[in-house]
Design a protein around this nucleic acid. Structure first.
Lengths: 226, 226
DNA sequence: TAATCGTCCGAACGAACGTTCGGTAAAGGA
DNA sequence: TCCTTTACCGAACGTTCGTTCGGACGATTA
């Protein structure tokens, strides 16, 4: 969990902030992290709207009122879950792209990273995908900003690949189709039946890349029609 | 709307059923159909759990209590919407497959039918996709049965194509990837920006078919490894 | 004309919701 | 030792929820 989770709570905080809070900051963050994990499971199982704070109270073993010591609202809880998941997957992608130059390998790394994180944090990713439109205020705006940034990067990776191979295809349709293939996983993946992230990533990458590069092929060294 | 919607309501009905109900059956079904249309829009916009019967009352212009003359519960409303959408898309697919023999054309028709219906009934299909796990009782079991049947057919179409072309690939991953590409549309399609169903279907079919047939290719007339 | 039926409504029901209030008890610094 | 801060809780707040009750009123039937 990020270091600044402390800012999650905004009321009933000591007025003399910043003096000797440092001592128990770690405990606070760890405890909030545990609550977020339980909240992820509860939101995943019942859906955000159908899940109640009393469900979370039961799951954590903490009293209903006690929960509010760690965050200010149910919305903030969802915000923290979504933001953390998105930032982690984005950071992972950036790290793995460093020093990789081959356009096809870069797209393969995108798929690998996405599916690996998706399956390793299936519940959080379901909450991220499924409760996508729930947050309406500035929380929602912030999560949507990270999402746009992630989309922008992926679009760039696919564009680079198409340009390098002289392929013509709608980049928007291509990327959103790829996202569809990958994100839909949360509706069907069963760890006891289906392959692991590595195999799945290879198979989906094979379908997508062979498909895109094959379907969008045009005569060598010709120019676009306009 | 199907002819037997009347069975939607189960209480406060005349005990002497089946005698002279026939006279106003049409009006009842038409009115319920209008309510279902509004309910689809409300569930689509706010999500099933967040949508309230008072929202629906406002949308239809009918009183809260008056709504319950046409159905017995909010759950039944969702059930009727999901069942109707699924049955229609399934019937459309069956009709368009009749007399079509070429395996590739049959898969293309599946994609064409799916996307055409998806975009022509975007709101109903979002409710179908997004509120997939909401129904828990026998309503849910019934909708899930239709879904399994649809999945079974699609799996068969893809299997047939792979066999005809001597292609080896996990049929499950292939079909679920295809569903992902297609169903994810409800999260991004914008009629003012994106192409229509026909173009989209061709592009997705090109990516998927070129990808599957290319990536899964094996040496001609060789036998599977076991 | 009297009785019945189809259609719809105002008002209310109890339950569940997210959140807050006033407090307690242990820990820790002065 | 006293006093602040941290961590938490029982009980309740006001609101909204899905659903139902009893009845109204026009149309149809006997």
């Amino acid at each position: 969990m990020p270091a600044s989770l402390r800012t999650a709570v905004a009321y009933r905080r000591p007025r003399t902030l910043g003096r000797h809070i440092g001592g128990s900051r770690k405990r606070f963050d760890r405890r909030l992290g545990e609550i977020l994990d339980h909240a992820t499971a509860v939101f995943c199982d019942k859906g955000y709207e159908a899940a109640s704070m009393r469900d979370l109270s039961r799951a954590t073993g903490m009293s209903l009122a006690g929960l509010y010591y760690y965050f200010e609202s149910k919305e903030k809880l969802l915000y923290l879950i979504q933001k953390h998941a998105f930032e982690t997957i984005l950071a992972g992608l950036r790290r793995r792209l460093e020093g990789l130059r081959d356009p096809e390998q870069r797209v393969r790394v995108l798929i690998q990273n996405h599916l690996e994180y998706f399956l390793a944090n299936q519940r959080a990713m379901k909450v991220l995908s499924h409760e996508d439109e729930v947050l309406k205020n500035s929380y929602g705006a912030e999560v949507r900003a990270i999402k746009r940034e992630y989309y922008r990067i992926c679009l760039g990776l696919v564009e680079d690949l198409m340009r390098a191979r002289g392929v013509e295809f709608s980049d928007r349709i291509a990327v959103l189709s790829l996202f569809g293939m990958m994100n839909w996983i949360y509706t069907w993946h069963n760890p006891r039946v289906d392959a692991d992230a590595g195999v799945l990533a290879r198979q989906m990458a094979d379908i997508f890349l062979t498909g895109l590069l094959g379907a969008g092929k045009r005569k060598r060294s010709s120019r676009p029609t306009q």
